[in-house]
Amino acid sequence: MINPPTVFVVDDDQAMRNSLKWLIESVSMQVETFESADAFIKSYYPGRSGCLLLDVRMPGMSGLELQEYLRANQIAIPVIIITGHGDVPMAVRAMKSGAVDFIEKPFNDELLLESIRHALALDVKQRDMQAQRAEIATRLARLTPREHEVMVMVTNGKANKEIATGLGVSAKTVEAHRARVMEKMQANSLAELVRMAINANLTLSESSSEE
């Protein structure tokens, strides 16, 4: 059972919390509010889908610190930053820390909701990607070391002949390996295989190891 996506609102001002909840609920989204970053951390468990609406200026743990915490704990929930007037430098820092969007108070409801929708979509996408990556990883695990080598080289854009020279085998053997790789990775085309490799961060690591 997958939970419906929830909008988590963290703001120290009660009026803000209440009004945000009121606004977001008007478009039939689920909202949970927290009066501090601490409270949020205590009740949130990773894996809950949704997005985070975060006030930058807060007593105790600030919005930026919370972002830092999430990143450190590899919680990939999309974050929308709400800033007061004139907090532009802080907003920039937030964006640099990986926030999806930032909204300046007072804000247009349409804009906010759009941003939320966008964040939720992003969340869904991120979750899909993560699932995909997991799938690719299992497939990769099935490859033999030689097949793995061949796959890295192929996705790095090397021709069969080059690979054969590089590995010291015949071109035919390379072909056979390549076919088995395509099969094991369930790739219909080279393009698909390349995408999978990118997804699994194969290219970079291999190329660096090659150096």
């Binding site: 001002d13 009026a15 803000m16 209440n18 009004s19 945000l20 009121w22 606004l23 609920e25 008007s26 007061g84 007037h85 108070k105 007072p106 804000f107 409801d109």
Partner: peptide, 13 residues
């Protein structure tokens, strides 16, 4: 800003 934002939110809602 706080009350104004809250007002807008409530009104929009």
């Amino acid at each position: 800003n706080q009350p104004l934002s809250a007002i807008i939110n409530f009104a929009s809602g």
